[in-house]
Amino acid sequence: MSRNVLIVEDSPTMRQLLIMALRKIGDLTIDEAGDGIAGLQKIREKVYDLVITDINMPMMDGLKLVSLIRQDERHRDTPVVVITTESGEEDRNRAFRLGANAYITKPVRAAQVTRKIRELLD
């Protein structure tokens, strides 16, 4: 059965890299959103098996999005992966406190993303 994955990232370059990484996993339906508001809209419309989000985005940042995902009953246990340029311990801890399951710092390698997503989906 195909699983639904949402990528929330303002950079088309990063979205393309993430899509390439996810394609290696197999049967996934991948949706994209260019900012936090668009991401939240998609989350309210559909149930996702995994969400990948950037932190620094226009309209709504990724950390706010993570906290709103956790408030949604249907996505309380959905794995959320944060991918960001922010490598500080404070940002990392805040992301985990808000409900993120994994924290990956840029620049990312496609294989690194594939491994982490596969681990969370399994």
């Binding site: 950079s11 088309p12 370059t13 990063m14 890299l17 340029t85 840029k106 620049p107 990312v108």
Partner: peptide, 14 residues
């Protein structure tokens, strides 16, 4: 903008 994105996301420049 794309050049900036490539240098940030793929190279990791600040």
């Amino acid at each position: 903008q794309i050049i900036l994105e490539i240098v940030i996301n793929l190279i990791g420049a600040e």
